[in-house]
Write a protein that binds this DNA or RNA. Structure first.
Lengths: 222, 222
DNA sequence: GCGGGTCTCTACCACTCGGTAGACGGGGCG
DNA sequence: CGCCCCGTCTACCGAGTGGTAGAGACCCGC
C-alpha cells in the first residue's frame, strides 16, 4: 500500500541513519526503539527484524561510523608520509569527517562517556595506528627543529582529539556562550578556524609556521 | 534502628552527592531514582520527600556544582586583575576545580549534550563574566605584543573550555588509547601538563613565554 | 495454484520507570 | 496523655521500555 516505501535505499541503512541521529541526540538509553522505528516509518518489531536487539543496533551504528572513519585514514596516512607541510591536509581530512555529520562527534563523545571500556578496543583498532603515525611525524619534526621540543606527542594527540570531539559535539550550544553577536554559521567558522590555529600554534615552532623559506632556528634549547 | 545513620551529614547533601556521581557516570536518564536512593541508603519515596521530582534533583545537582564554581571565580578574577603573568594561576584554579571532582566535567559535558538550551542561561550567568575578563586580558596582551595577534579571544576561550571539559570527562578512558605504557596516574599527569602547554603555547608569543632573561632554561619546567 | 522466504504488522509480555497514597514510628510540646 | 510534624517506609499506579508470538501480505520459483 505505501508506495513511497518502494524507493527504499536499503531499510537497514535508513534504520542506521535514524539510530545514529537519535543516539547522538538523546543518548543510547534516551532514544527508544519506537522512536527510531517511527523516524524510519516502520514499527518496532520490523526494526527488530533487521537488528535483533537494541545493543546490536548500537553496534551497527558504531561499526558504520568507524567504517566511514576507515575511509579517511588512508588519506591521512598518505598525507602524513608525503611532505613536510602535511599538517593542514591531515587537519582538513579530520575536520571534514566530523563536519560531514556532526552527529559523529556527539556519538563518539557519548560512547566515551557511557561505555568507555567497550569503545576502547574499537578505538585502539581504528585510531591507534593513525595516532602512531602522527606521533612519529611529531618526533621527526622535533628532531628537525620544526616542532616545539616540549611537545609530548601522545598527550598532544589526545588533546587534539578532545578539541575536535568536544568542539563538534557542543557545536552551537556552547558557542553562543561567548561568541555573542555573530550569526550561527559565522560563529561556527570562527570556532573551527581557532580550533585549527590552537592545534597548530601549540605544535610547530613559530619559525616553521610563519616563514616556510627562512631557515633560521628560533629557540633551540637542546 | 540503623545507628550508622545517626552520623548524617545532612541527608539532602548526601543525596546530592550520590546523584552527582550517578548522573555523571550514567547520565540523567540512565541513573534511576531507585539507584540513587540505594546509594544513599534510603528508599525512593524518602528521596522524593527531599527532592519532589527527579528534575528538581537534577537542578539541585547543577546548582550545587555551579555554586562551587562560583567559589573559584573570585580567585580567577583576582588573578586576572593582578599582574601580567597570571595565566598559570588562572589555569591552576580551573584545573583544581575539575580535579577536585572529575564528575563535574562529566556532568557538565552531559548537560551540554543532553540539554544545551537549559544549560546555556546558567552558563551565561556563571562563566560569561569570567570569560569576558579573560577575553579582555587577551586583547590587552595582544596590544602589548605579549599574545599572538591572530588569536580570536572568544573562540580561544571556547577551545580551552572544550579542552578542559573533554579532557576531564574522558580522563582514563581515552588516555589508554595512545599513552599505552605508562601507569594511570602518570599518564593523567602527562595529559594535564600537555593540556596546559597547548593552551599556553597557542596563546602567548614565544618571546613572552620562553625567555624572561635570554639564555636561561625554559620557564615552564613546572 | 502452491509452498516457502522475506518482511511487516498487531497484540502481548515482563519489567522498570517516576511519582503517589497512606501507614508507621519517633521526638517535641502542650 | 494527646497532638502534630517530620521522615521513612511498603504498596501501588500508569506509562513506557526492550523483546516475543504469531498472523498476514507480498513475491518468486516450481
Amino acid at each position: 500500500m505505501p508506495s513511497d516505501r518502494s524507493n527504499r535505499p536499503d531499510i537497514s541503512q535508513r534504520i542506521l541513519e535514524a539510530a545514529t541521529r537519535l543516539f547522538a541526540r538523546h543518548g543510547f538509553v534516551g532514544a527508544s526503539l519506537r522512536d527510531i522505528a517511527k523516524a524510519v516509518g516502520i514499527r518496532k518489531p520490523s526494526l527488530l527484524y533487521h537488528f535483533p536487539s537494541k545493543d546490536e543496533l548500537r553496534r551497527g551504528v558504531l561499526d558504520q561510523m568507524l567504517a566511514h572513519w576507515n575511509d579517511v585514514v588512508p588519506k591521512i596516512l598518505r598525507a602524513a608520509t608525503a611532505g613536510p607541510e602535511q599538517f593542514d591536509a591531515i587537519g582538513a581530512e579530520i575536520l571534514r569527517f566530523f563536519r560531514d555529520d556532526p552527529d559523529r562527534g556527539r556519538l563518539l563523545l557519548r560512547e566515551l562517556l557511557d561505555r568507555p571500556d567497550e569503545l576502547a578496543p574499537l578505538l585502539a583498532l581504528r585510531v591507534q595506528p593513525w595516532a602512531k603515525i602522527v606521533c612519529d611525524y611529531i618526533r621527526k619534526g622535533q628532531e628537525h627543529g620544526r616542532i616545539q621540543p616540549d611537545v609530548d606527542p601522545e598527550a598532544y594527540v589526545i588533546q587534539v582529539i578532545n578539541l575536535v570531539l568536544c568542539g563538534f559535539a557542543t557545536h552551537g550550544s556552547i558557542r553562543s556562550l561567548v561568541a555573542g553577536g555573530s550569526d550561527d554559521v559565522e560563529a561556527g567558522e570562527r570556532l573551527l578556524t581557532e580550533m585549527m590555529r590552537v592545534a597548530k600554534a601549540s605544535l610547530f615552532l613559530p619559525s616553521a609556521i610563519a616563514v616556510p623559506t627562512r631557515g633560521a632556528t628560533g629557540t633551540d634549547a637542546n
